[in-house]
Design a binder for these strands. Structure first.
Lengths: 126, 126
DNA sequence: GTACTTGTACGACCAGAGTCGAACTTAGCA
DNA sequence: TGCTAAGTTCGACTCTGGTCGTACAAGTAC
């Protein structure tokens, strides 16, 4: 089976608006490790999360419930934490909500091509 | 830290010489799953194995002991089997020896860019 | 034949990860 | 004040995976 070519959304690095909450603890760019990132992405649910974040990122961040995953909240916390601690996503606290987005620039800088792999992935065809 | 550019060896698809043993059981190209492949590559030791295979592939195949890994044989069997069942490497039985090489064409067809990620990786910098 | 070498198979052990429920914290709102 | 909603924390359970020793099978060399 050939790879279905998928248009990658244009990267529009928007400046952070004033009053943006600081990111939750995360590894620095230089501390990203390929084996850790690959391990974080080796789970279908987390792959779905990251891909959805990559494809639908008109808005800056997305809340946890926005994904429509029918798992208990404690499970989602677990997976989002795994993605954040691996350096794949960045999370910020907005009042009650904790919003996430993919660290595209950092991942592109350290592991060029990885983001496109996730975009090209589909849950059915693997 | 920026990515250290590393020259990827030219792909010279050499025809199989007659009498080549058949490959050990492995998933077909269309059955490769990204999450499985990423999971197989999320181990530093396996990443080392695959990278070494990619960089030093003048000869078609390499035996298990060629890697110089100071682990018991049963551990190596475990890791090579994991890589083969994920579809990352192909193994053939030559008499006593079991030789391996990376399924570069298959990986490039399904997950373009993945092989280059492994080549660019280094055990120290992640 | 015997000895050696390559690698598998099996079983045990242990650490880590995925799953979930229940209790808790916090912010916003009526 | 009290309610609700978002998400965390904790603990328990289960399952997988990495590690290794030992025993075994199959070629190779003498």
């Amino acid at each position: 089976m050939s790879v279905t070519a998928q248009a990658r959304p244009a990267v529009t690095v928007m400046p952070e608006p004033p009053g943006t909450p600081p990111p939750l603890p995360e590894p620095a760019v230089d501390d990203l490790r390929l084996e850790t990132v690959l391990g974080a992405l080796s789970d279908p649910l987390r792959l779905r999360i990251v891909r959805k974040l990559l494809l639908d990122r008109e808005e800056f961040d997305h809340t946890c419930g926005w994904f429509g995953l029918d798992r208990p909240k404690s499970s989602l916390t677990h997976h989002f934490k795994a993605l954040r601690e691996a350096g794949v996503i960045r999370q910020r606290q907005y009042g009650l909500e904790r919003r996430s987005h993919v660290r595209v620039e950092d991942l592109d800088a350290r592991f060029p091509g990885l983001v496109d792999l996730v975009i090209a992935w589909s849950p059915e065809s693997g």
